[in-house]
Write a protein that binds this DNA or RNA. Structure first.
Lengths: 297, 297
DNA sequence: AAACTGTTTTTTCACGATAAAAGACATTAA
DNA sequence: TTAATGTCTTTTATCGTGAAAAAACAGTTT
């Protein structure tokens, strides 16, 4: 089992959704850009669609014969990237407790436990190391630094520095910059979510990420933009971990975002700074309260 | 050839230098900590030292029989880590010109050219990606972003943000903190170098790195401390690349460092800010002037 | 001739295997 | 009885290999 065909399976599933909408599929290169895969993969997809009687395929003509049924889709778990699988396993271990700072991480053991090769685990750990939670000892094992209070404080310190700067840069952007339209759209989404917060509160974290990434992009600095990956990763798992008062927290955050957006639109740097600081302060507070105190070194 | 024994060879070479100083070697575990390798490697080293008649080894007694000759040492190039070898090759390519931004990077080709496996190249590229010079396209090739003016500006923007903050934190450190002693030592080294700048100017870059790392460490923030790796890496290759006016540049920098150190010792935040800003400004200028203009996108 | 389909080549991804190096355990000497 | 040495086990670093996926090339169709 040298390489899973998850790219194909995932693209196939997404491709099935196209069949609902049209009576015939576009050209192979067009499908490729649409699904973000190569033509080779598109042809494998089309081959299977033909075999399962979903389409009739002859050269340029790809006629839809029937609408896809639930059992036409590949199971969700087969569409994941290996690195996603490893990340999930690793984070589960890390957050499930018993992961004391200073503990050493064994590549071979991790690989065996997850049921993958050591190379993939190594590559994951190298990629993951930039999040500052693990560290490598020269030709030896990895050491877990732990998701501690210190980590959260260091993370938020940088976050605040970067976001204040990005927000100021954002507000200074010219009238005709396309970001203002993006901001308007996000504002609408926020208002909509605010109105239905009681039922849709769990959709906030995705909106949150899009909003902050838009602001960070205004910095035009790759290190600032890339740093948001660290924040996003932590928040992603943090939200899965800590569901306490999720609705209330998100309701407050949406309101703060709206104030923040209004400040940006006013282009008044003082107002932007105030609104940004206020939101960052409560974000930090939320993160800090969620850290299990027992895990401190 | 599945793994080179460069750890052994490097430790062996360093071990040879111990023979100059003493008449008999310490215990195996002690040698291990001294050379930073495991006892397994120490025993391999001792075995060879015995074979080549450098020592007489019987259990606890390891008597030095003769002083090592130049040909006892392993050649320098055999003591390098694979990742050092790959990094050097890669950087040579990158700086040698013809490396246009947007150009794609081929793992297989790189591996073949350097004469190593693809796994090592992949791991190197993943590690290297945090420097912001390359980027990966989802299940496809890497793209070179290039050592451009934009890169230098983004890098220095963060650097200045981080260093100003670290310098302020440094100056606020209590009287009894051990960093003040470290700073005194560095100050002495700077004075010494300043006096002999005409002949020793090329020793500056190493001192520069030690000085700035000391300051960054005062931030007590892993992201700030780790970011210095990016700067160090760029400066390392930059200094190899651009030798123009090296002596003059370094002479100016040493003087700026001394002013910066004096400001830190005064603990006057205003003075620290001024001295730090001044030095960072000339550092940025040096970096910017060295970037080949033709490479702009 | 532009854009597509069919076919072939190349590259990426992931694995198992193996030597180097680290680490653990057992034994011996001071 | 502590700290070393001797021996054995485990882990890390690296390669070659093969399937998945991308990319390049060649031939068709409109």
């Amino acid at each position: 089992m040298s390489k899973s065909n998850n790219v194909y399976k995932d693209a196939y599933n997404r491709g099935l959704r196209l069949l609902d909408e049209t009576k015939s599929l576009p050209s192979e290169p067009e499908l490729g850009t649409l699904l973000g895969v190569s033509r080779t993969t598109i042809r494998t997809i089309l081959t299977r669609m033909e075999e399962t009687g979903l389409i009739a395929w002859n050269k340029r003509s790809k006629t839809v014969l029937r609408v896809p049924r639930p059992d036409d889709f590949f199971p969700e778990e087969e569409t994941d990237t290996l690195s996603q699988i490893i990340e999930r396993s690793f984070m589960r271990r890390l957050l499930a407790g018993g992961a004391e700072p200073g503990m050493q991480i064994n590549e071979l053991e991790l690989a065996r436990e997850i049921g993958v090769g050591t190379t993939s685990v190594r590559e994951f750990l190298i990629r993951f190391s930039r999040f500052g939670l693990i560290e490598k000892r020269r030709n030896s094992h990895w050491v877990l630094k732990g998701f501690t209070r210190a980590f959260a404080l260091e993370l938020t310190e940088i976050r605040e520095m970067f976001e204040l700067r990005s927000a100021a840069a954002f507000a200074a952007l010219p009238e005709d910059s396309p970001v203002w339209a993006d901001l308007d759209l996000l504002e609408d989404e926020h208002r909509l979510l605010a109105r239905e917060i009681a039922t849709r509160f769990n959709e906030f974290s995705e909106l949150d990420e899009r909003f902050h990434r838009l602001i960070h992009r205004a910095s035009h600095n790759r290190f600032i933009v890339d740093f948001y990956d660290v924040i996003a990763m932590i928040f992603h798992y943090h939200y899965q971990w800590n569901k306490a008062q999720e609705r209330e927290r998100n309701e407050v955050a949406v309101a703060e975002h709206l104030a923040y957006i209004a400040a940006l639109k006013s282009r008044d740097l003082g107002k932007v700074d105030t609104a940004c600081r206020k939101h960052l302060k409560s974000a930090r507070h939320t993160l800090l309260t969620s850290i299990p105190e027992g895990q401190q070194p």
